[in-house]
Structure formats: C-alpha cells, structure tokens
Design a protein around this nucleic acid. Structure first.
Length: 213
DNA sequence: CGTCCAGGTCTAC
DNA sequence: GGTAGACCTGGACGC
C-alpha cells in the first residue's frame, strides 16, 4: 500500500477505459514473503483455481507453523523454505497433490533454504538497483516459473511492467472488447502507453467488474 | 467411462 | 526464435 502510483494515475486519467482507476485503485496484494508468492503462483499454473487453493491449503496445514500463525490449524503460517526443503518429492505428489510441480517445490525450497537463491531481496531492491528486466530474468530461472508466473509474482512486488497473460485474462480481455480472441501482440500494444505500469493497467482493465460501482 | 482443460512450463526439434 | 508434446490433478461434459 506504500507504492506511489501517481504516475500511473496520471496516465489512467487520460484513458477513458481506465480513468476510473485514478480514484485510487491499483495494488496487487502480496504475501509476507516473496517465497510464499512464488510457491503460490506455481500452484496457479495449468490447473483449476480449485486445485490451486487445495494445494496451498495442504501446504499450510501440513508444514505451516501454528505457533507463529495465530490459534489453531486454520491460521497456520505459510511454510518456511526450510520446512518445505525437509520434505521429499513424494510428499508434494502424494499429500499436496501437486503432480508434476512436486520436483519444482523440492528444488526451489532447497535452493532458497541453502541460501543459493535470494528471493526476499527482490522485495526490497529499488528499481534502479534491480531493473524489471533483471527481476524477470531471475524469476524465470526458477523451476516452474515462466512468463506468466514471473509477471504475476512481479505484480505482487509492485513491479507492474509485465502483463499477466494466461487462460483467464486473455479470454476476459477479448470478451470485454466484444471479440472472439485478441492476440498477445494486440494486447501489449493497447497497454504499451502505460510503460512501467502496463501490467497494472491491463490487470485493472480485466478485473474492473470485481469492483462494485 | 473417455476426453477435455483449467489463471503454464520445459524440452526437443 | 518459434512450436509440438509431455506433464499431475480433478471437475465438467459427452456418450
């Protein structure tokens, strides 16, 4: 919530389809840690939302620390990298039901727990210190993270340049335009004017109806 | 009961 | 650089 989006609002107010957002819309809610957002985002890939929440629920129920999460199993904290690193691949397949994502969770959590991969620095680094290109490059290097997932994680970091293009946003955008489908190139062109806020502009465009007005 | 596919990614041409 | 194929799961849908 501490992001300064005045630059975005300036451009949004000049766009008839997004002028409404200039009243103060615009943050993607992030998790307490980048690790948590990365894991959760992997859980959104190539599956139903129902399965996504099921996998996350299982991770939290099985590996989350009740002591730091409040009272009771429903408020467990999200598992730490170390807690996830201690589990074998079979746990992620058989208990979490993560399927082919299982080895990704093992590789990722062990790399983070061992200090070989530093995700949390991405949350505090300034745009000058680590430009979006570099953040995206590092994220895509992670197992199970591709262009879609990198864009999604970046939004939670307040890095709004990349567009979240997936099987939900693409048809939603096309539907809002009254078209059967729209190419990615056309979508990118439409939001190019928002520069470093292009991803946010696109996201607000396709989620506008989530906000009652 | 078989096929398709959902908030994709990765490998191999 | 662009693109088929494979890949876990589980709910929806057709037969």
């Amino acid at each position: 919530m501490d992001q300064d989006l005045s630059g975005f609002y300036e451009k949004a107010s000049a766009d008839p389809d997004l002028a409404w957002a200039a009243a103060g819309a615009g943050r993607m809610l992030g998790s307490p840690s980048v690790f948590e957002d990365v894991v959760k985002t992997i859980c959104t890939t190539n599956c139903s939302w129902g399965l996504t929440t099921k996998m996350v629920r299982e991770l939290v129920a099985q590996l989350g620390d009740p002591a730091t999460g409040g009272d009771g199993p429903l408020t467990n904290a999200f598992p730490t990298p170390a807690a996830m690193a201690a589990q074998p691949e079979s746990f992620y397949r058989e208990v979490v039901r993560a399927g082919y994502r299982a080895p990704h969770f093992v590789t990722l959590s062990r790399a983070v727990a061992a200090g070989d991969v530093d995700l949390e620095s991405l949350a505090v680094a300034s745009f000058a210190e680590i430009p979006d290109e570099e953040v995206e490059r590092r994220l895509i290097q992670l197992p199970g993270i591709g262009p879609y997932a990198a864009a999604h994680v970046m939004m939670t970091l307040g890095r709004n340049s990349r567009l979240i293009l997936d099987s939900w946003t693409r048809p939603k955008y096309a539907r809002l335009l009254g078209k059967r489908s729209v190419s990615d190139a056309a979508i990118l062109r439409r939001f190019r004017r928002f520069d470093e806020h292009a991803g946010l502009a696109f996201w607000l465009f396709v989620t506008r109806d989530w906000i009652a007005d």
